[in-house]
Amino acid sequence: MHISDGILPLVWCGIWYAVCIPFWIVGVREIRKRTKEDPKYLPTLAMIGAAVFVISVWHIPVPVTGSCSHPVGTPMAAIIVGPFATVVISSIALFFQAFLGHGGITTLGANTFSMGVVGTFTGYLTYILLKNRAPVWLSAGLAGFVGDIMTYVTSALELALGLNPHSVVYHWWLYFLGYGPTQIPIALAEFAFTAGVVSYIAENRPELLKVGVAHG
């Protein structure tokens, strides 16, 4: 989902930045508010930010397809620190990843929208919808799976809108087929670690999760 500089037309780069601005504003306000309420929040946020950085740059080989890809980590982060704060930390992670050759600066808005906004909110909403109907591990795991897949669905859409405006649906599908076969096993891994981390925290340090759920 890391779209490089030069791939998207500048107009679309601007549009994706503009779409992200409200999420950044709400996210920064949320972080300020929660930091005042709870001094533990900021170091927790920093640690989750570091986790998102590593998870979303860690390429896992999928020998069956002969390629590799990475999970996103934002659904897990959203459950723990809240969705708007996750948009902010994922933008920071994506900014630094640009210096590792993953993504870019002009495409930071597009990459933030796919991973930070869509991946975060689809995962978070999945968790919220399921948490009273299913065990925590299942709700969290499905949140991870859905957020992961939706991130790549969105990246494919961004490429199709920017590069193939006359045949968006066809190219959206085509680009997603490029991601999909490798991404589905990675999304299953994302299911496993999101389920494991969130259910363990829910069992042993539930107050950490309440931050993400009660204020989200």
């Binding site: 779209i3 999928v62 020998p63 002969g66 390629s67 590799c68 494919a156 490029g178 991601y179 991404q183």
Partner: peptide
Amino acid sequence: ELEGTDDIVE
């Protein structure tokens, strides 16, 4: 060297 899907799709 396994190519990343980001590069493949790009």
